[in-house]
């Protein structure tokens, strides 16, 4: 069964420059797919379109998730709110509400499913709180449930965001650069959690990554983007450094390995002045 189906998706921000150029994409249920590309290649834009947070150009395009229309020809589908509740989104900046407790942040995942008035008043039942606590236990931070989410480290916040998606009962998780602002060990924990949700619950995961090595380690399938177009879609193992260089040219350095990334290569002008 198809989880995500994108046809003819285009997006233009400034005239004449397409951020997404007539994209077609299909992801089956239960897949774990990496989306790679240098910054500015359109990864985030694509994910924001699939989650219905951004509207496409008004030409012949359609995005369906789990057979529900998210948007068609630049207009959000009628059932977009119920469709959104089946899709968990994990963001680079976590997008938790800082001043609320971790538990409340996770309970927000239930808003799309419980009666509106109860959600609006923030009245959650014991059973619902239990669901949220179980999700927190699963990502390994149930001991932090009562703390304000701003007191958590980046990796913990990202796991709380995943717990929110689990609580949401999402069948599809879209993760937009979930590890881009994390240190390597937190990044691994977050990717492990996503992998776990994919393997055990059969949740379809589409995760955009800056670095190819994570894609190789966690995702059987990789989609590579450049300038708003898909330039590779297939088995991650085929993504050798050689192929990457063919695909990206000089930009391939940016995508290769997190370890090289940590050392700044660029020599800036002020440093020269000091020397």
């Amino acid at each position: 069964m198809v989880a995500i189906k994108v046809t003819g998706l285009s997006k233009t921000f400034t005239k004449g420059k397409k951020a997404l150029n007539s994209l077609d994409l299909q992801i089956d249920k239960g897949e774990m797919v990496a989306l790679i590309g240098a910054s500015g290649s359109g990864k985030s834009t694509l994910i924001r379109h699939i989650s219905g947070l951004m509207k496409s150009d008004s030409d012949n395009s359609k995005i369906e998730v789990l057979d529900q229309t998210i948007q068609e020809n630049g207009k959000l589908g009628r059932g977009v709110r119920s469709a959104r509740s089946d899709v968990g989104v994990v963001f680079q900046q976590f997008n938790l509400v800082n001043r609320l407790s971790v538990l409340t942040n996770v309970l927000i995942g239930l808003l799309g499913q419980i009666p509106r008035w109860r959600g609006t008043l923030g009245l959650f039942t014991r059973a619902e709180k239990m669901i949220a606590m179980k999700a927190l236990a699963r990502v390994g931070i149930d001991n932090l449930a009562e703390q304000r989410s701003s007191t958590l480290s980046g990796g913990q916040q990202q796991r709380a965001a995943i717990a929110r998606a689990i609580t949401q009962g999402a069948e599809v998780i879209l993760a937009d650069e979930p590890i881009a602002s994390l240190d390597p060990s937190s990044a691994r924990k977050v990717m492990d959690t996503l992998e776990n949700v994919n393997k055990e619950d059969g949740v379809t995961v589409l995760v955009s990554l800056h670095q190819v090595d994570y894609a190789l380690r966690y995702c059987p399938r990789t989609i590579a983007m450049r300038n708003g177009e898909i330039i590779f879609d297939g088995d991650s193992k085929r993504l050798t450094p050689k192929l990457l260089e063919q695909l990206y040219g000089d930009d391939s350095l940016e995508l290769l390995g997190s370890e090289q990334q940590e050392e700044p290569v660029v020599t800036s002008l002020p440093e020269q002045a000091v020397a």
Binding site: L53, S85, F91, F94, L96, V97, I108, G112, Q113, T120
Partner: peptide
């Protein structure tokens, strides 16, 4: 705006976005 977007992505209503986000 990003936490509000996070809440919108869960399928919450506009009023719920205001209250929680």
């Amino acid at each position: 705006p990003s936490p509000v977007e996070g809440i919108r992505a869960t399928g919450a209503t506009g009023l719920q976005e205001v209250i929680f986000g």
